[in-house]
């Protein structure tokens, strides 16, 4: 499962990151590295781009880059 497969409101832990895309490296510099928990906040009309939240920040990215992030979804607790 990748970041691109999450639904709005889902939380997940970032696992494997494929660093072959320069955009992915930029996202890592912005803090999207392995083992952090992210929340898919919003998806724009048309299904793209995505808004991802972590540690109080929000970053937008397109699905093309989101596919490079393997994630483990955290089931909702309530």
């Amino acid at each position: 499962m990748t970041l691109a497969d999450l639904a709005p409101g889902d939380t997940a832990t970032l696992k494997q990151i494929n660093t072959t895309d320069p955009g992915v490296i930029r996202l890592m510099v912005l803090g999207m590295v392995e083992d952090i928990t992210v929340r898919l906040e919003n998806i724009a009309i048309g299904g793209d781009p995505l808004e991802v939240g972590f540690f109080g920040s929000s970053i937008s990215l397109r699905k093309e880059q989101a596919r490079y992030f393997e994630v483990t979804r955290i089931p909702a607790s309530d």
Binding site: L30, I59, E64, Q65
Partner: peptide, 11 residues
Amino acid sequence: PKPRFILALPE
């Protein structure tokens, strides 16, 4: 290359 859209969205 296809532009990427990587942008911090401030609160």
